[in-house]
């Protein structure tokens, strides 16, 4: 369709110049190849790139046809903005997202082929009718040194002669954009976003406050691992430092250790921090390891 349009002589109804036809016979096949490539490539990003090629060649065709404004707008708007958004979304979807070749609806391909051919026929007929019935008038007096090119002519047309349709179209587009945003943010508009300060406070006071990353300076600790419980000044295990998630520090298992340590050493306060073995001590070693293994299997099955 575009090829037919491009083939129509525009400058004053005369014949195409040599340069114009050379450009057409180069750009036309390129645009067509881009369209076909877009349809037939499996990878979504490749499809998008083929489409970009088609759009670029159309843009250059417009420029050749003395419509530089249209040509560059085509490149900026379609290639630069719209296709970039497409590529953006495709990359969000994932790199290896390819078309599935499984036919989900029975007979879908046949129907699509028939309908596609029909649509193509209609389009070709309509364009052919237009081309034969309406003679090309060229750019006429609106183009030239007096009117200062097609930018001014386009501006006059859009903002003076066709102002209302133009405004209506933009209102429609803006409505669509605003609608999409409203749907996206529906329900979460009122929710206040936590500031950096609030997040820090939350981290220090909230449920995660017990498990810091590393013990800061001034803290007596023999290890940084979350599996190693922290000791309070009297040598007892700090309950907040025990993780419910990490198995090595099961509270029940540690209780025995703590009892061990406390019975070994005399009064409280003389406990050696290294005396605590974190559930892997030799006294309970075999039993606890066995427990852990069996529990692990059990949990694994539960997860499955």
């Amino acid at each position: 369709m575009n090829a037919l349009l491009a083939a129509a002589p525009v400058t004053g109804g005369g014949e195409m110049s040599t340069g114009e036809s050379v450009a057409f016979w180069i750009l036309g096949p390129v645009a067509l190849a881009g369209g076909l490539g877009m349809i037939f490539s499996r990878n979504a990003v490749h499809s998008a790139l083929w489409l970009v090629m088609t759009m670029l060649s159309l843009g250059v065709l417009y420029m050749v046809q003395q419509a530089p404004f249209l040509g560059f707008t085509q490149i900026i708007v379609y290639t630069g903005a719209i296709m970039m958004l497409f590529v953006f979304v495709l990359m969000m979807v994932g790199r290896d997202a390819s078309d599935s070749v499984v036919e989900v609806l029975r007979g879908q391909r046949l129907a699509a082929a028939v309908l596609g051919v029909g649509l193509g026929g209609l389009a070709v007929a309509a364009v052919a009718e237009t081309l034969t019935a309406v003679g090309p008038v060229g750019l006429g007096p609106s183009y030239g040194p007096e009117a200062r090119g097609n930018v001014q002519a386009l501006g006059t047309s859009i903002f003076r002669d066709y102002l209302l349709p133009f405004e209506l179209t933009s209102a429609l587009l803006i409505t669509a954009a605003v609608g999409a945003m409203v749907y996206t943010f529906a329900g979460q508009a009122r929710r206040k976003q936590a500031s950096q300060r609030e997040r820090v406070t939350e981290r220090l006071r909230g449920p995660l406050s017990g498990y810091g990353s590393r013990s800061g300076p001034g803290v007596f600790a023999t290890a940084d691992s979350v599996a190693t419980p922290a000791l309070l000044p009297d040598g007892s295990v700090a309950p907040a430092s025990l993780s419910r998630i990490i198995e090595a520090t099961r509270r029940e298992r540690l209780d025995a250790d703590i009892a061990d340590v406390q019975s070994d050493s005399g009064p409280a306060g003389e406990v050696d921090a290294r005396a605590l073995r974190g559930g892997d001590g030799d006294g309970h070693g075999a039993g606890s390891t066995h427990d852990r293994l069996s529990e692990g299997e059990h949990e694994g099955e539960g997860a499955r």
């Binding site: 530089p68 560059f72 490149i75 290639t79 630069g80 970039m84």
Partner: peptide
Amino acid sequence: PVGVLVVLACSSIGV
């Protein structure tokens, strides 16, 4: 006649 647009178009392709 649309020189400024060329710059914009080039930067949008460059991305």
